[in-house]
Write a protein that binds this DNA or RNA. Structure first.
Lengths: 114, 114
DNA sequence: AAATGTGTTGACATTCAACTCAACTTATGT
DNA sequence: ACATAAGTTGAGTTGAATGTCAACACATTT
């Protein structure tokens, strides 16, 4: 399981779409030199919301890149942090160290809720 | 439902255990004047990890105090944010804007998992 | 009353995230 | 070879989070 860095992964994705750093940067609203640094791991990964914008420009879902950074997009974070019951749920879940399958089960049950 | 502030709640808890600000502070690893400010709402609530330490010293579960803040302990945050499946669950949940009852139901189902 | 323990306040400090800006280098097309 | 496009690098900025330190006030004990 050779884990690539966030920067390398981003660089590959961007190139595969034939987009320059400048194009990506201006679409996202940051300086292109910042993209360069991120791609070369000179800086930590961007804020979650910036990652989401990057993925929009690249036309891909943000899940993979987000998961590499241990960051959460603002809407998700707020939805959770404003709700004590949700927090309770997450603390339980964490202390149980759920498997992926179990998370999947919960997602199913979540959908059945409506 | 008269909601007490974090500071007031902490002050009551600490006093009920007969602990001074200095004792608590040194057990937690912060300056006692910081505890004072938090108790008097001169500062925002401490970092989640600090709250956990406070509760350890007080001999109580951190849930109640944590729930009063919008913060999540590092282990919890990391466990969910580095797991794509968990993130997917959260994105779903967030987009559905679950009620407290629904979160409660999920917590029940979570416990039934084992 | 003096000493000691406890609490409060204002000003300042540190760390980190998340960048920007200007200058430079390298690669590419004509 | 030259111009232009693309990428890299160093230094500095801004703001939020999370505190520290010194000075003082109040309360309690001896």
């Amino acid at each position: 399981m050779e884990t690539k860095t966030f920067g390398q992964t981003l660089k590959n994705l961007r190139r595969s779409k034939g987009i320059t750093q400048r194009e990506l940067a201006s679409a996202v609203g940051v300086d292109f030199s910042y993209i360069s640094k991120v791609e070369n791991n000179r800086m930590p990964a961007p804020a979650a919301d910036t990652i989401v914008k990057i993925c929009e420009k690249l036309g891909i879902p943000p899940d993979k890149l987000l998961a590499m950074t241990r960051k959460m997009p603002t809407p998700v974070k707020e939805a959770i942090s404003e709700n004590p019951v949700a927090q309770q749920f997450l603390r339980e879940a964490q202390s149980m160290t759920l498997t992926d399958d179990e998370w999947g089960t919960l997602t199913q049950q979540l959908k059945k809720l409506r």
